[in-house]
Each structure stands twice: as C-alpha cells, then as structure tokens.
Amino acid sequence: MTAEPLTQAGRLVASGRARRILLAPRLARWVLVVAVLGVLELLTRGGAIGPLILPPPTTIADTLASSVTTAQFRADLARTASTVAIAAACGIGAGAVLGALLWRVRLLGQALEPYLIALYAMPTIVFYPILISALGLGVGPVAVIAALMALIPVTINVRVALASVGSVLPKLGRSLNVSRLRMWRSIMLPAATPLAFTGVRLGFVYATIGTVAMEFILSNAGLGFRIAVDYRNFDGAHMWAMIVAVAIVAILVNLVLVGIERRIRRDML
C-alpha cells in the first residue's frame, strides 16, 4: 500500500516524459510503413521483384479500390464475415461452458489440460475431408473448423479467469446467502470477465484465422477462397488486393475488441 503512491508518482513522471515524445513513436511508425511501401514500390517497378510475387503497392491499392465495389467482393466478404460470426459465437459459447465445467470439476480440468494445450498445435483442418462428406461443401465444414479453433483459447482463458477469482468473493456471497444463479450473475461473472474477455478476443482471432485458412484450402466462396482462386489464375494484383482486404478486416475487428478489453479492464481496476 505504501508503495502505491510512489509508483503512481513514477507513472506520472514517466507519462509526462512519454507525452513529450508521444508524437515521435506514432510518426516513426508511419515513416516506417511509408518507407517499406516506398522501397517495395521501387523494387517492383524496377523489376527486382517479379509481378507474380508482388505487384507494385500502388497497383494493389488500385485493384483493391476497384474491386471493393464489385458484387463478387461483397458476396465474398459477407460469406467470410457471416462464417466468422457463426464460428465465433459457437466457439465462444461452447468454450465458456467447457471452461466453467473444467474449473468446477477440478480433476477433469487437470486431466484435460495437457490435451487442451496440445490442441493449439493440432491442425483441426485435417478433419475437413470427413466434415465435407458429412456436411457438404459450404459454410458448414468451414464454420465447424473455425469454431473448434476458437473453442480452445476461450476454454483455457475462462478456466484460468474463474480460478483467479479466488475464495473471498464466493465466501462473501455465501455469507449473504445468495442463490446459485445470483452467485454466478453478480459475483463470478463480473469478477472473471476481465481475464475471460482476453479469451473471447483470441476466440475471434482464431475464428477468423480458421475461417480464412479453411476457405483458402477448400471452399466455394469467401475471401480466403478468392485468394486461392487468384493464385491458381496467376492474378497477382487481385490476389494481393484480397490479402490486403483480409488483413484490414482482421486488424479492424481486433482493434474494436482491444478497445472493449481496455474499457472492461479499466472498469474492473
């Protein structure tokens, strides 16, 4: 407790120093990005990098600008976005329940822990042949794989988040004689949310990665599918435009989630 004002003072000093050079990192970041793009532009225009590997960034930007208005792009984007949404909803829902179960039944959690962690390294995608024969080519197999990939970080993080609540708050609840439902709604859920939300964000990230990767390997629509088709048609400019589109969507979604995460964490502190 006595150290707290000191660290706060330290933080104030540090933030004052940071504020003086606050523009510098942001500026440096943009300078870096522009410099890299400029060098790539020169190398591609000069012929050092072939157009099949990387077309000039300005060409990619042009292609992206002209293709975002097409019906095909809207259809692909809608397909990918809806698959990610379904997969993330299922994966996060199931992961939260599973994480709570593994926390509640302690031995089960300890027994399954190494296998859960190993599933991070399991390319769930190898099950796609079975899923395609069971569900057909379409949203089904993609959503199942992406949901399975989202499930793992959510399960692990929810279990850790619930374990981190400790015993004081539940004891308080019991001494106030609250109902089981009330205990979860008013005590466990809010107390576990800050850590658990990191799992939810990772769930979204993994659902996106799973969806795009699966579309890329075998699907009939979606942004990942379009990249694979462009590659097979040697359409480098459009392929790179779609890669950039995927990157932009992924980064925007993550930025929104990080913003929510920061807000939740600040509320809890």
Binding site: V205, F216, G236
Partner: peptide, 18 residues
C-alpha cells in the same frame, strides 16, 4: 499486434512464388 491477428497462411502463395 496487427500482423499477429492476420491469417498469415494467405501469404503462402507469395512464398511459393519466391
């Protein structure tokens, strides 16, 4: 952090090109 969330497997065609 931005690069971390992008599905990097879509860059594989470019790596095949290189």
């Amino acid at each position: 952090a931005g690069a971390f969330v992008v599905p990097r497997v879509v860059l594989y065609p470019a790596l095949l090109g290189i």
